[in-house]
Amino acid sequence: MELMHQYLRKQVDISDEDWRVFSSRFEQKIYPAKTFYLKAGETENYLSFVDRGLLRFYLEDTECNETTIGFSIQGWFMCVFSSFYTRRPSFYYGETLAETVLWRIHYDDLQEMYSRLSIVERIGRLATEQMLLWKSERELSFLTKSAEERYLDLFNKVPHLLQQVPLKYLASYIGVTPQALSRIRKRIS
């Protein structure tokens, strides 16, 4: 939990007492590699902080083709926001790509913490803004950039992700086939 505490201290001035109260509502959950964190049709009940590991979120069409829509890495808050905030079933699958350790807080506990501690409301807003900014930048990149530029953006933002994620998932994330991504990687190396 120390990584989350460090992260939050960089974002907000959280007192030791507020941290003690807030952190007491988190539970640790360890997932083996290649395990579902969430399946389509289930409701997201937790806001989680990735202490260690890597997750992939994807959609599956009627022909079982997968489209990767995002990743969560160590040191980030994450959840399927559309399900978490609406309390409706998720359209997305979430799976671990490596053994993953999460510190998670249940939706109901988070709502109580929002009411009880004003600093937690700020933390929630900042976590949501981080996720929305990432998604907004990705959306804009699909409208304004080439696949090669999207790959380079990903490389510049999270270079270690490219060593940890299989090529087919990276290709899906930037909107190309694995073969096209191989050609892009050859061209820029």
Rank of each mutant, 00 (worst) to 15 (best):
L55Q: 04
K168Q: 15
H106T: 08
Y93L: 13
V158T: 11
P32M: 05
R187M: 08
M113Q: 13
S189F: 10
Q6K: 14
R150E: 12
Y107C: 10
E99C: 01
A127G: 12
C79A: 12
L143W: 11
E99T: 08
E95R: 12
Q11Y: 02
L143R: 08
A127P: 06
T67K: 02
Q111V: 06
R104N: 02
S189W: 07
R20L: 08
V176W: 04
S141F: 11
I69N: 00
E129R: 13
R25A: 04
F81Q: 02
R87Q: 14
S90G: 10
S146L: 07
V120E: 03
S48C: 13
F142E: 05
P178E: 13
A171D: 03
I174A: 02
R122K: 15
Q130I: 01
L161H: 06
M1N: 04
D61P: 05
E2G: 00
R183L: 13
Q164E: 12
D108W: 05
Q6R: 13
D51V: 10
Y7K: 10
F84N: 00
M113H: 07
S24V: 04
L55N: 00
Y31L: 12
M1Q: 06
L126E: 08
T100P: 04
L170W: 06
K168I: 13
S182E: 03
L181P: 01
I69A: 00
K145V: 02
T96Q: 05
P89I: 03
E95N: 09
A171M: 09
C64Y: 12
L162H: 09
E63C: 07
E137P: 01
E112Y: 14
F155C: 09
M131I: 15
F84Y: 11
V50T: 07
E66K: 12
D61Y: 07
Q163N: 03
S90C: 10
K29I: 12
N65I: 13
F57T: 01
I69M: 04
K10S: 05
G53D: 04
R88M: 14
I174L: 11
P178N: 13
Q11G: 00
A98G: 01
I14D: 01
G94W: 05
G53P: 06
E66M: 08
S115E: 06
I73W: 05
R183T: 08
E99S: 06
K10G: 03
M4L: 14
M113N: 05
L54W: 09
I105T: 02
E99K: 08
R52E: 14
R52N: 11
N156V: 14
A180P: 02
S48V: 05
K29T: 12
D16S: 15
L161N: 03
E17D: 09
A171K: 02
Y31F: 15
W19H: 01
S115M: 07
Q74H: 08
S23G: 09
P89T: 06
L38M: 07
S136I: 08
W103H: 15
E139H: 15
D109T: 04
S115P: 00
E44T: 09
D16N: 15
R125Y: 12
